[in-house]
Structure formats: C-alpha cells, structure tokens
Design a protein around this nucleic acid. Sequence first.
DNA 1: TATGAATGAGAGTTCATTCAT
DNA 2: AATGAATGAACTCTCATTCAT
Lengths: 198, 198, 198, 198
Amino acid sequence: MKDVREPVQKRSIEKKKKILDAGFTLFCEKGYYKTNTTEIAKRAGISTGALYSYFKDKKQIYIAAFHNYLVNISDRLLDKLSLQQPFSLPDFVESWICCYIDLYADTSRALAQLRMMISEDIDINRHFSNYENEYFCKITELLTKNDIAQDDLFEKVYTCCILIDALRQEKSAFSHDSLDFDIFKKQVKKTVIGLLSD
Amino acid sequence: MKDVREPVQKRSIEKKKKILDAGFTLFCEKGYYKTNTTEIAKRAGISTGALYSYFKDKKQIYIAAFHNYLVNISDRLLDKLSLQQPFSLPDFVESWICCYIDLYADTSRALAQLRMMISEDIDINRHFSNYENEYFCKITELLTKNDIAQDDLFEKVYTCCILIDALRQEKSAFSHDSLDFDIFKKQVKKTVIGLLSD
Amino acid sequence: MKDVREPVQKRSIEKKKKILDAGFTLFCEKGYYKTNTTEIAKRAGISTGALYSYFKDKKQIYIAAFHNYLVNISDRLLDKLSLQQPFSLPDFVESWICCYIDLYADTSRALAQLRMMISEDIDINRHFSNYENEYFCKITELLTKNDIAQDDLFEKVYTCCILIDALRQEKSAFSHDSLDFDIFKKQVKKTVIGLLSD
Amino acid sequence: MKDVREPVQKRSIEKKKKILDAGFTLFCEKGYYKTNTTEIAKRAGISTGALYSYFKDKKQIYIAAFHNYLVNISDRLLDKLSLQQPFSLPDFVESWICCYIDLYADTSRALAQLRMMISEDIDINRHFSNYENEYFCKITELLTKNDIAQDDLFEKVYTCCILIDALRQEKSAFSHDSLDFDIFKKQVKKTVIGLLSD
DNA sequence: TATGAATGAGAGTTCATTCAT
DNA sequence: AATGAATGAACTCTCATTCAT
C-alpha cells in the first residue's frame, strides 16, 4: 500500500485537500504531538477511517501538509522575485526580504516545529532534506541570470537566506525586547547587498 | 507547591542533579515527547515518586535541564572569550566561532527541539525568552570593553550570533550537500568582522 | 436475504468462484482473522460491494471456500481409492496414506485453523459437523464393498482416519524432532491393517 | 523490557495469577481474537495499564496462560500414572485414558485453538514446539522404567498419544453422531495395548 | 521520606459492512 | 448490477501522575 493515495476524482481531491488543510492548521496551532488524528478528521469533516484511506499514518499527513505549504510559498516567492525588470540589486533584496517575511508571517511557529521534526524523525528528514537545497539553487540561478555571478555564490546565497530567515523569526514570534527591528533589518539588508555585490 | 524543589541537603542536591542529567541525556537522544518520566527516573537511579518530589511535572525537568545546560555553555564560552589579551578582532571572531561550535557540538538536535518547545509551550517560552537576550548583552559588553563601540552594536552582535549559529547547524546536523563548509565559514567570519569593525 | 447467492449466469458463477479462490488462498496464508474482505475482493478482481452481493458476510466466504475444498479433496481421494482392482488390503492402505498426505500437503495449517473455527463458531460448526461423518461413511462403504465387513467397522475406520491424519500433520507442519517419520508411518500402516483385518 | 514480569512479592504474584486465570477463561470461552485486553483486565480486577506492566502484550498472556495450564495438566497426569504399583499394562492404559480425558475435559476447545495459534504465530510456535516432545519423552521413560522397552518405543508412544487425544476430542466436543464412544474407546485401548506389548 | 505498582483516559489505527453514485 | 469511498466502533497499547505502603 502506498503512503499517500493520489486521488483522481474531483471529490476525492477536495477531500484530501481538506485533510491537509485541517492537519496543517492543527499542526501549526498545537504542534505535531498534541494534534490527534481524530481531531484532524473531525475538522476535515470526515471519519477517521476515511482519513486513513488517504494517508498511511499521521506522519504522512504532516509530511504532505508541510510539503504543500513550502512548495506553495517558495513558488510564490520565486515568481515575485523573477518579475523584477530591470534588475537592481537593492530593489531585489528589498523585495526578497519583504516577500519572504510576508509569506511566512502566519506560520513562524510551524517552521520551528518542522525544523525539529526534521532532526527527530528519519522519514521526515529524508523528505525535506532536499527541499531547502532546491530553494537555494533557484535563488542562485535567478541571481546568475541577472549577472550576479561570482565565486562561491551558493555559499553567499545561503548566508543571505539565514539572515533573512532570522528577520522573519524576529518579526513574527521570538522578538527580543532589546532589539530594534528596523535597525536589524537595515543591517541585514546592507549585509546581504554587500555579500552579493562582491 | 512549588514547581521545582530547591534541596539543601547534600544528598538531595545530588539526586536532583542526577535527574537533570538523566533527563537532559534522554531529551537530547529521543526528544521531549518520546522520553518518558519512568525512564528518566530509572536512569537517574531513583523512583518515579521521588522524581515527582523534586519536580512538579515532566515539563519542569525539561526546563531545568536545558536551563542548566545553556547557562553552563554560555558561561564557558564567555570565560574563554574574556581571556583574549591583548584583544584583536580577527582572533576574537575566530575564537568565538570555534568555541561556539565545539561547545554545542553534541547537542545540535536538542537545540532544534528547544526552539520548538519555546514556540509551542507558553511556560517554556516564558522561562527562556530572556535567556538569549542576556547572552547577546554579555557579548556586547565584552566588545564594548574592548573598544568595539559603535552605533547599533546590539543589533550587529545579534546578526553575528545568527550567522555563527548557522555555522554550528551546518557543521553538526543539517548539512547541505552542495554547501562547502569551509567557504561558508570563511564568509561568515569575513561578514562578522565586517559588521563589528565598522 | 440468503447467506450465499446461487448465481445462474455464467459470468456470475465465475465471479463467485474467483471470490472463493481468493478467499481460500488468503485464509490459508494468513488465517481467518488476519485476512480482510477488502483484500479478498481485490485479489478476486471485484469490488467489495460485489463481494457482499454474493456472500452475506466474511464467515460465509470462509464456509463456502473450505466446503468446496474439502469436497473436492475427498472426492478425489475416494475416486483414487475406488479404482484399486483387484482389491488388496495392504495396497489399499498404502494408497490411502499416500493419497491423503499428498492431497492435503499444501493446506496443513489451514486444516488446523478450520478445526479451531469449527470449535469456536456455532455456524461453522453446524456446517461442517456432518462433513467428516460422510467421509467416514464413504470409506466404510468402500471397504464393505470389498468384503472388509466386520463388527464395529465404522469405529475402526474412524480410528484409522485419526492415525492417517496424524501422519499428514507430522509430514507437513508440526514435525516433532525426535520422531522418525518412516518408523511412525510403518507403525500406522501396520496398525491400520491390523484394525481392518481384525 | 522483558516479555513477562516475574513478580516476587506475594500481592504481585497473586495479581499475575489473576490475569492468567482471567485470560485463560476468556481465551477458552471466546478464542484469542474475540477476547480483548480490556476485558481480561476487568475480569482480573485490575486496570489495563497494570496488565501491561505484567505482560508485554496480549500474546504473552496467551502463551503464559496456556503454558501454565499444560504444565499443570501434564504434571498431574504423570504423577497419577507414576503411582501405579505393581505395574500392569492394561491398568496403566486404562488409567492413562481416563485421567487424560478427565483432566482435559473442560478445555477441549481451547486445545483446538492452541493448535491453530501454534501454526499461525511464530512466537507461539517457538514457545510450545518443545512442549509436546517433553510429554512424549516422559511417558516413554515411565514405560521403560516398568520394563516396557522395545524397538521404536518413542514412535509407538506417539501413536498412542494421538489415539487417546482423539478419544478426548470425541468425548468432549466434536462428537460424531454415528460413532459409538464406548466401542471407539474399547478399540483405542486394545490398539494401545497391542502397540506397547508388541 | 521514598517507593513503584496502579491508574485510566486517550493515543493511532483497522476493518466488516453499507450505500450514494 | 456494480462500485469503492466512507463509516465509526473497537482494538491494542502508552504514560504522566498518584498514593497506599
């Protein structure tokens, strides 16, 4: 039996989506361990049995829900960043930062959980280990296309991603009292531009 | 009843320490949710009943164990960094990076979990929310003492901490295949020095 | 509604046969309780709904499948034993033993299960209680026809059947390490001949 | 963790015994698959949790309960058979048959189930595969001590055991209408004596 | 004070059967 | 007549916490 059923009929596809939505919402609200399958099924408006005909187990729901979410977000981010014409590095970085923060605004906690799940569970690890790499590569490509080609670009992009993600965290959940967000943002922006222009 | 008993007698203090050691080890190995209190008690060499006379519940063990650990590590880090005389920024940064990575080498997974626990649980959040702030402040002070005093130093230090922590992560657990660690480290070091020297 | 539908159309008859074959195979492989109806339907190449239009429930499939099997086997056994002309008791017994063991070779486990099901479930008990009787009677008749007529022949035949079935068990599944099969067989044969020749 | 806890304290030993008694009764009444752990715990007068602190899982309860039962019965049988002094083969056989039937009188169904479980489950198989052998050996020894020493005695004893067990079955559960129990018994006795006196 | 057996609600998952399509 | 998605009660097993000893 497969881990996840791939429905073809419209109604089934909708139902699977409902499970994923319900799961994603609950996993974000309460975390993986405090969310139970009965609750996911109830919120999705189906029976527990039906839930298990779409997904082999709770873990597969988690994986599929976060997979969808991440793909969706990063597609939207990359779409927006690709549109920038003519290309200007400062504008690009400003866009990148703002879009990134906006897109992940509501799910900061969920991302912390995902990071833990990735480190705790071998299946989840396997599923998501390549995901981030792809995102870094796509950003790198985008920059190369726009003539930002340098030595060690991949590592530089990675460093930028780390900083922008720190901004997101600071913005949405773990704000540190003594930290001034706008100053922090200004610095991140400056550092990112610095990294990518030399 | 208090959440955590503060023992005065020597034997009690030892017992409490044993619980914290056992708990820390298990939480690191298997994560909070897959560790059970019976196992902690067994590994600590005491009864479950005794365990509950020292800590109100499982969560308090988690908090106390990680509190001790983090205080211990950051004290050791700050001690080492304070020793540097005469002060040279490049040496300081090199030290900082190496000590930080070394000290957290064995508990990378545990930190990912802690971050999740902080975002998931209100009590844990309250306990640890100020912890990072203090660490940033102490580093900032140390730099100020050594005449690295600038505008927005706190935000700069924060940015540096983010980058160094990213290095730790890359080193110990979530390594990205396409990323060259040494190049990444070189860039982080350069960026950190850049931030702190202007 | 009847427990089992008796189809008239050719296609229906084939479908019913497919269900019984699939059921029999699975019941033998995994036992009654570990076989589920969905799996039977899938292996039979029909829908679960269709399955339930042929059989009232899972138990009826079990009964019908094993009924067919047992009738088939004992018919084949009796056919073979009837052919022996001219009749010689030692040859008859040798044939009986060999055919019996051969015919049941693949389904030794299934017979243990059937025996349990008969003792556990009232419906199954009712269905099969007369089955063995008929087999004993037919053997008895066959012997009578060939002038092996004595007092208490039915009881003697029963005793022989027990011994031959013990041989089958020993041969195929529950072999006892310390037991020499050939010696055991020799003894059974001798005993059976002894019983039937008075 | 061990499969079965070996309690030392009196109260624990009693509790374990209660679980085994409850389990044995229910397994005999309803069979392994239709008996649930909650019911066993309830009948034993304890919580489900407590049950699982004595036995790793349902299967271990089954194994332990039937193990105890079989050992108990065969010990009692062998004790009785050992007492016979002076030894007389016909008396010995008469004793054997009567004791055997009496001792197993109430649990005929349970034995059919056990046989199925042995063939269906690898752990149960392992546990009980040696059990029968030991029983055959002890009977063989007993006969040897009393000067019934012949070629192929083990195989002969086995044959006798099969026949006596068939008597038990006939007596207690699967009675065949056309079979006269007393005649059948007379024949078994005669055959057994014949086998053992050569 | 210390023990560790006991609790029992609640977890994830299965599956015989039904019924809208 | 045929489908197979859906049901939901029932299953086995876990574990934070308590409390009689």
